[in-house]
Design a binder for these strands. Structure first.
Lengths: 130, 130
DNA sequence: TCGGACCTTCACATCCATGTCAGGGTCAAG
DNA sequence: CTTGACCCTGACATGGATGTGAAGGTCCGA
């Protein structure tokens, strides 16, 4: 698959696909003519990268943790305590973000529901005791 | 409370506190001498802003949703369908991010556990059937 | 064989969140 | 009254993620 195909399949611009490669997030082969050749599994991988990026995780960190997100048993060979610290740190940060997002997501949902109640002709001052 | 105090209490630099004000995320009073005067409730608000920012939500969006994250019933007066669309959109995006983070967080935890198993002298090829 | 649609690299531009510095006021304690 | 710690504004700098455009190569189909 070449870059345009992957771009269409993931919604990520070719520019960004090259950038991810540059940042060491993906490894890409070349055809004889110099064109990049992308393996199928990269579709998922690129989607995962996008998700992490959208969640505020910088490429530098993604590069660190990405190898640990699949096939875990395969790579545990290098039981580097430094890496371990990084991973634990990142996991904790993720947990914190999840909590924050969950909290705000709930609040938004409540607000949306309140709007709907207000729109569908309900008395505006009626409310669930939160 | 003045800017340095709030900065210490939130871990957010004065520069950023002014920036948030500039972006309309917080409303700040002034003393007679021109110094900013911050209300106590801004400590929580600024922490919330940081959390959302760290989770990849840009100030523009935060400005949109922040008024809806507290005191919901108070503000439902303007049942603007445009706003509703924005809120639903953002809530959905948040849910997606939560799912992504949760997924990766779990994978990280598994990997960390596997590392620990490998370090504490376990046979490296033993594994839980995932 | 030509044209269009793709690819390459490289460079410059942009937006956002942030840092940092300069030039200058405020104020309280010594 | 001076000094140091705070505050103000404004500007310039930076790093990361992204867009865009130029100059050129590849390849397929009319």
């Amino acid at each position: 698959m070449q870059i345009g195909d992957l771009s269409h399949r993931t919604g990520v611009s070719p520019r960004m696909l090259r950038y991810y490669e540059d940042q060491g997030l993906i490894t890409v082969g070349r055809r004889e003519n110099g064109f990049r050749e992308y393996d199928d599994y990269l579709v998922d991988r690129v989607r995962k990268i996008r998700g992490l990026l959208d969640s505020g995780i910088p490429t530098r960190i993604i590069a660190d943790i990405l190898p640990c997100l699949n096939r875990e048993q395969v790579l545990v060979v290098d039981a580097d305590p430094q890496l371990r610290a990084v991973l634990i740190d990142q996991r904790d940060k993720m947990e914190e973000r999840i909590a924050i997002l969950q909290h705000n997501c709930d609040a938004l949902s409540r607000y949306i529901k309140a709007m709907e109640r207000a729109m569908t002709g309900g008395r505006p001052d009626e409310q669930a005791s939160s």
